[in-house]
Design a protein around this nucleic acid. Structure first.
Lengths: 201, 201
DNA sequence: TATAATAAATGACAATCTGTCACTTGTCAA
DNA sequence: TTGACAAGTGACAGATTGTCATTTATTATA
């Protein structure tokens, strides 16, 4: 987490810094990003950066979290729109992500270098957890009667499976440079396989 | 790919170098690994390293490929053992990976920092592809009559889904430091959900 | 208002790493 | 023996990181 000094920063300086970081993390993935570039763009001295953030990662996950909070809201909206139908929701949600324009390159770098920690941050969207203020909100919204589950544990696994496959498809969209159409049609095939089961009845 | 000079190296020198690289990539993930450490351990001059490999990544993926080729053989054996039952095979295969001892830390670093390229390398195990000499071998071994598919495309998607979920469970085992028992029981739950479908019939 | 105490800003610096390149050494065939 | 080509070597420039002693700003207190 960023240090208090970062949050105490005047708005314009904070924005400048966020902009600079976003620019660098859009240019290259986390590992290749350089603090030197960020401070050059933000026009702050080196020492200041360390006054605000622990290190490169700290700044990165601050940005990523902001993004995740943003799309989390969209996810909840979609869930309501589709009366808790998880599968319909996911298909719409998938499109939302691959059509996202403002942060394309930032996202692309994130998805193509999806470490455990990054995936964990992303998948907060689908979890009820501390940092997700909508405790129970998501779980309650989902229409569980349409799901093949017998308890909460199963539901968690289902969420896990669906989010994993969803991310995998987003990653593949970027990795193989698929068109939005191709990516979507692949995704729908897989969602249907998930729904109906991989084994023949 | 390593340069020709690497393959021309006398066996003991080659082994020394491989050992040194493995040691470094076990210590820390690819991004944090340093060539300096490798050459120090291998006792070769800096210039020599670049005589053999393009860069750090080159050496890393050489090692990873070796490992993948190794477990690929095991996968084929298991597939035969279970008469092409993909689900039984995967459960056994999953255990094989999480019980692996010789390369635990190397694997742990790989799994917790699974970039697209690393995942792609791993998932060669489940694909028929150029670099996999068993073209068609795997596909032919699988008992497709037990699967809910209508064509080759579906089969590819099923392999994709299964391998993704499998890796996800391995990653989680390392990330959440689960015991082998916990990891396995989670995995089995998810495999069953996949088999039978996430939607209620 | 003056002064002390606390917080923030700054940039020079040591430590580290990377990839290159001119040069040396080794090998092998003519 | 010699020449041509392959391999080995390590010093070096360029770049980056995190730290820290010092300066500057802010806030509280007498």
């Amino acid at each position: 987490m960023p240090k208090i000094t970062f949050y105490n920063l005047p708005d314009n300086k904070k924005k400048m810094l966020i902009h600079a970081a976003k620019k660098e993390f859009s240019r290259v993935p986390l590992n290749d990003a350089s603090i030197s570039n960020i401070i050059k763009t933000a026009r702050i001295p080196r020492g200041s950066f360390y006054q605000y953030f622990e290190d490169k990662e700290d700044a990165y996950f601050f940005l990523l979290n902001e993004f995740v909070i943003n799309i989390n809201d969209n996810f909840v909206l979609l869930l309501k729109k589709y009366d808790g139908d998880l599968f319909e929701t996911m298909i719409d949600f998938f499109q939302l992500i691959i059509e996202e324009e403002e942060n394309v390159t930032f996202l692309e770098n994130a998805f193509l270098n999806m470490t455990y920690k990054i995936e964990y941050t992303f998948s907060k969207i689908f979890r009820d957890c501390e940092s997700n203020e909508n405790i129970k909100e998501i779980t309650d919204l989902i229409n569980t009667s349409g799901l093949n589950i017998s308890n909460d544990r199963d539901l968690r696994h289902i969420m896990q499976i669906i989010s994993t496959i969803t991310f995998r498809n987003v990653v593949e969209k970027f990795g193989k440079e698929l068109s939005q159409q191709e990516a979507l049609s692949n995704y729908i095939i897989e969602i249907n396989l998930l729904k109906n089961g991989l084994a023949r009845k």
